[in-house]
Design a protein around this nucleic acid. Structure first.
Length: 573
DNA sequence: GCCGTTTTCGGCCCGACTGTTTTCAGTCG
């Protein structure tokens, strides 16, 4: 069993225990453990081999024992026993909006309901209203909820599409009278790679008017709940949005709260309690009932003697401890980026010429741009033959002459890592290029051993400067290659090879946890858009967000370096 | 079930919204 399968098993255990009515804190412990496994970033079996399972936060003796059992025997007896006691269809009921474990247990024990279908017909036939706490409105909510569950996709949205939707709502709501400020919050602000619900926060003294305007937006399909401080809706495209409204003098605490993560907030509130302060979205309350309001978000952290924590790090994974004696001012920002190291043109599958891409880069204030079209074997992307590669070199020279000192254009290539582990161009060609990015596009499904070996071979080639989108994953569409990432980063650090964080929201590859691991191994990273169009340079902030989630300092990112330093590094290699 | 800069036992964040049981439980984030 791998990390994800074990996490899923613990999640299932928690759900079953909840329906069974077990003690809530036992259940939360399994949830926390599942969460910890998901965000681990390294193979849990490696930690197991080192005998360090209990060093994972949220994993104690009992859960470590269960992980051990799953690693050894590929199953968990505790789970199997629970599953045998509870009808399997009940888990599905938890997915219906507004239905939690208590209701599921009630439907099962008092109504004999064991599946979604049975629940739906019971609701339609009006049989649920006889149960205590249930009425006609609850029945209708269940019918609607099941309908919504069937139609909505189970996938979380790509960061980019959530971002676009948020921008639309923000620009609409900014026009509304009484809206002083509107900001994204939640996982969007934390730059998680996928987004479940969209969270937005408005500062206003007129909450009811703001909410009325919000639910009337053409984008809104239906209202799930509406109050003066919190309203949730479903948009026409199925995405769900939660909007909070708080007065400006409480904006800081409200934004901190709405940004999360839940784990981060819980930890923060526990620290507050030790200082006799109770923290909520409204601000701090002292024991005597007096309040401490936070207009700015930094006020929330300051009250606890903590440095302001960048949203990207608020996952409850040690960032609060760090904020007690350090700040995060060295974290990379969008402004730190000085150039783009991975861009395509019409020479292969890009949509703009070398000059058009260069002009766009100049417009964004970039100091340098690497043109890195695909290599010959990638026929589907019109990869360049050696002859065309040489012709391209001439055109780059001409464009450079035209643009003069406005930007440095480098000649690179995104060279295919072939399925046998060789590269698509011979060494004597590679050495003529200013910079070489090596990427996997094909044979991603080879065995872990095979793909890992391909990458290790590539890293050992002295002409390779950067590994592009390491795992080849496309979020929600294509699984990552199965790789021994630890071995790869170790080798990369030895050979001074740079790993790309591909900023395209479909890739975000390296992902945050891999980027963090690469940094731990001492690797340098790059934030590349892989632009196929001038507009794609705007993807940079997704890459920056991912790097920040990995706590990457600006210095650790190759393309924050001034051109002179980049040039020196390339020469020295 | 986990965890400890007051604890190895006794805690474990806090509030909004909904529907229903006229005072609150369940769900959600």
């Amino acid at each position: 069993m791998n990390n994800r399968e074990m996490a899923d098993t613990f999640e299932a255990v928690a759900n079953l225990m909840e329906i069974k009515g077990e003690a809530i804190y036992r259940i939360l412990a399994y949830r926390r453990a599942a969460e910890a496994l998901r965000g681990l970033g390294r193979d849990v079996s490696a930690i197991w081999e080192a005998g360090e399972l209990e060093d994972i936060p949220g994993v104690g003796k009992a859960i470590a024992g269960k992980i051990d059992e799953m690693i050894r025997s590929d199953r968990l007896e505790f789970y199997e026993k629970l599953a045998s006691e509870i009808p399997p269809g009940l888990i599905e009921l938890l997915k219906v909006d507004g239905i939690g474990p208590k209701k599921v247990a009630q439907f099962w024990k008092e109504g004999g309901i064991t599946s979604l279908e049975e629940l739906e017909s019971a609701a339609k036939e009006g049989k649920l209203r006889s149960l205590s706490g249930m009425g006609p409105k609850s029945e209708q909510k269940i019918i609607d909820g099941i309908q919504a569950l069937k139609s909505r996709s189970t996938e979380r949205s790509l960061l980019s599409s959530a971002w676009d939707t948020a921008q639309k709502i923000i620009s609409e709501m900014n026009k509304v009278k009484g809206v002083e400020r509107i900001e994204p919050a939640g996982s969007l602000r934390r730059y998680r790679e996928t987004i479940g619900d969209l969270d937005l926060l408005i500062a206003s003294d007129y909450p009811s008017q703001v909410m009325d305007t919000f639910v009337a937006l053409p984008l809104v399909e239906r209202v799930l709940g509406k109050g003066d401080t919190k309203t949730s809706v479903e948009l026409v495209d199925g995405m769900r949005v939660q909007l909070w409204v708080h007065p400006p003098e409480r904006f800081g605490s409200a934004w901190q709260f709405a940004t999360g993560s839940q784990a981060h907030n819980v930890q923060l509130r526990e620290i507050a309690l030790k200082k006799d302060l109770s923290l909520s979205e409204h601000g701090y309350k002292r024991d005597d009932g007096s309040e401490l309001l936070c207009r700015k978000e930094s006020d929330v952290y300051e009250a606890l003697d903590l440095a302001w924590i960048p949203p990207e790090l608020r996952e409850g994974k040690g960032e609060i401890a760090k904020a007690q004696n350090a700040d995060f001012s060295d974290l990379v920002t969008l402004n730190d980026l000085r150039g783009e190291l991975h861009a395509h043109t019409t020479w292969s599958d890009g949509k703009a010429s070398i000059e058009e891409m260069a002009q766009a880069a100049i417009g964004l204030g970039m100091e340098y741009l690497v043109i890195s079209d695909h290599s010959r074997s990638l026929g589907i992307a019109n990869g360049l033959s050696i002859e065309r590669l040489m012709e391209q070199r001439a055109e780059i020279g001409e464009v450079q002459k035209t643009l003069g000192k406005k930007i440095h254009i480098l000649h690179g290539s995104e060279v295919e890592i072939m399925s046998d582990g060789t590269l698509d161009f011979p060494d004597e060609i590679l050495e003529q290029l200013d910079i070489v990015i090596a990427s996997l596009h094909a044979s991603l499904k080879q065995s872990r051993k095979q793909v890992t070996l391909r990458l290790l071979n590539t890293i050992r080639n002295p002409h390779v400067d950067i590994i592009g989108h390491l795992t080849g994953r496309l979020i929600n569409r294509r699984d990552p290659a199965d790789l021994d990432v630890e071995a790869i980063f170790k080798e990369g650090a030895t050979h001074n090879v740079v790993f790309e964080i591909n900023a395209n929201a479909e890739r975000l590859d390296l992902k945050d946890s891999h980027a963090r691991m690469a940094l731990d191994f001492g690797c340098t990273l790059a934030i590349n858009t892989d632009a196929h169009h001038p507009d794609h340079f705007n993807f940079r902030h997704f890459g920056v967000g991912t790097a920040r989630r990995a706590a990457a300092p600006a210095q650790s990112i190759l393309n924050t370096w001034v051109f002179k330093d980049l040039e020196a590094w390339l020469k020295h290699r």
